[in-house]
Design a protein around this nucleic acid. Structure first.
Lengths: 216, 216
DNA sequence: GTCTATAGCTTGATAGAC
DNA sequence: GTCTATCAAGCTATAGAC
């Protein structure tokens, strides 16, 4: 553990605990106890519990959005309309690369996102606020790649995509049991190899109409 | 409101509140206050808070598993190996039909499942306990439909599928904002039309190898 | 089965000294 | 920026009367 300020120590521990136990499952006293700082410092630095959580969400979202936007730009600079696979890849691999290789605290951040994305009370609003502008850029690129796509299909495909990513980041170890130890929910490299072709095929099935592809 | 026993009133309210606010975000006092019964009755009927939650999970899982197992049997009786689409359909539509048409309390149940499936602490175990035997039957059918499939790919495809379904049931209204009001997260009929072709295409892309379809 | 009463603890928040 | 001290409120769990 490097020399961190008290504020940084709160941030580091809070990110991990919120990811593991959720917002309501984590108390300020647990956070500050593990961080070795006084409870009252949360109020001083972040106002209150929700302020702390929001700040954690905001911090990394900014950096992430810039990076993913650049990844999309690079794809489109080579080719516009770009192939579906490359667009999906730009969105997805930026995340998965962080989890696979870089500093391990990103895993906690994505674990937090998994909980936020599935929270029926305020999760939708929070995700929209932080990520929808970026998502719209990706959907624009996909719309140019599949110009005959029905608008609603594009949005629902993104929804399925987001759900698949989210469950991955939740890292619940269910697939470990289901597969009898063959797969591991924390094997983000395995997801990295499979998610792009899976999602791209889904997009093509619904958004590149040859006749009507909807079901029923 | 019909004439319900106190136990039934607790069940009804608890299901709704757990779905809306999660396990940690819901207190026994809220549940019993809304149900109009005494807090101590939770202890009498369910032991404790976790016992109540587990019972809610278990109750409907049984009925659901029987129904979905029958749906798979019907598909396989017509054709084995069955087409991928029909297998996916049997798994998915049993759920979505309940949400679209039948008694509205099923929505709460699926909302609870969405929270459990994404819970990194005990969610994986709980989902496995209640649903993995059934899921294995479906994966067996899919394996026969795509005999050259790599085993790990089958499991990961199910994982993506589960994630897409789960986010749907979380019903966070994010897609409402993202789509500018064009789509609604509670429009399970729309999901019903799109999820089966989306997921089936993903399975085919990864599990019906023509050369290597993994990415990178 | 249902209720009263309460034990025992934890929670988020905050006033105020340093 | 940091800490002590404390508040009011909430929580789960449970013993015991009816």
């Amino acid at each position: 553990m490097k020399k961190l300020s008290n504020k940084e120590r709160i941030v580091a521990v809070a990110e991990r605990l919120f990811a593991e136990r959720g917002y309501d499952g984590t108390s300020l006293r647990e956070i500050t106890r593990e961080a070795g700082v006084d409870v009252a410092l949360v109020r001083y630095h972040f106002g209150n519990k929700q302020g702390l959580f929001d700040e954690l969400l905001r911090r990394r979202a900014e950096a992430l959005n810039l990076e993913r936007s650049d990844a999309l730009d690079a794809v489109l600079a080579r080719n516009d309309p770009a192939p579906v696979e490359e667009i999906v890849d730009a969105f997805t691999h930026t995340l998965l690369n962080k989890v696979v290789s870089e500093d391990p605290t990103w895993r906690s951040y994505f674990g937090m996102l998994a909980q936020v994305n599935n929270n029926p009370e305020w999760g939708g609003k929070a995700m929209s606020r932080h990520f929808d502008p970026l998502v719209r850029r990706f959907l624009d690129a996909l719309r140019r790649a599949m110009p005959d796509a029905d608008e609603t299909n594009l949005f629902w495909c993104y929804h399925f995509w987001s759900g698949a990513l989210t469950l991955t980041f939740a890292d619940t170890k269910r697939i470990d049991a289901l597969s009898g130890g063959l797969c591991h929910s924390s094997d983000f490299e395995a997801v990295h190899q499979r998610l792009v072709p899976f999602i791209s095929a889904g997009f093509r099935a619904l958004c590149q109409p040859q006749g009507d592809n909807t079901h029923d």
